[in-house]
């Protein structure tokens, strides 16, 4: 009985491991463009949070303006690089 149980366990697992797979998931390398898009989303989220907190009355006007300008500058730099890389890809 023990031998049968051991055999079933081994055969089952080995069939599962080595059974030919038609569509193996490909390990693609993440690009700079994907990274920048993630950063852009993150900065947009920070901007949304900032706007919400300002509307909630958490920050005075001058703090809000300064922080918003900082985040928008960051976003602008990232968007510019994304556009540059995208135009490069299209040209290629």
């Amino acid at each position: 009985m023990t031998i049968v149980a051991c055999a079933v366990l081994v055969i089952g697992i080995f069939v599962y491991i080595f059974y030919p797979q038609r569509n193996t998931e490909v390990q693609t390398q993440k690009t700079r463009l994907e990274f920048l898009r993630e950063r852009k989303d993150s900065i947009y989220e920070n901007l949304r949070d900032l706007n919400f907190e300002y509307r909630a009355g958490k920050y005075p006007e001058e703090d809000y303006v300064a922080q918003r300008a900082g985040l928008e500058n960051e976003a602008a730099q990232i968007v510019a690089e994304i556009e540059f890389l995208e135009s490069g890809f299209h040209a290629a």
């Binding site: 900032l50 009355g57 958490k58 920050y59 005075p60 703090d63 922080q67 900082g70």
Partner: peptide, 16 residues
């Protein structure tokens, strides 16, 4: 939780 990212002014500290 009540401090702002980057920097918090005295006015903001007082308000919160």
């Amino acid at each position: 939780p009540v401090l702002a990212w980057r920097s918090t002014s005295f006015k903001s500290v007082r308000r919160n």
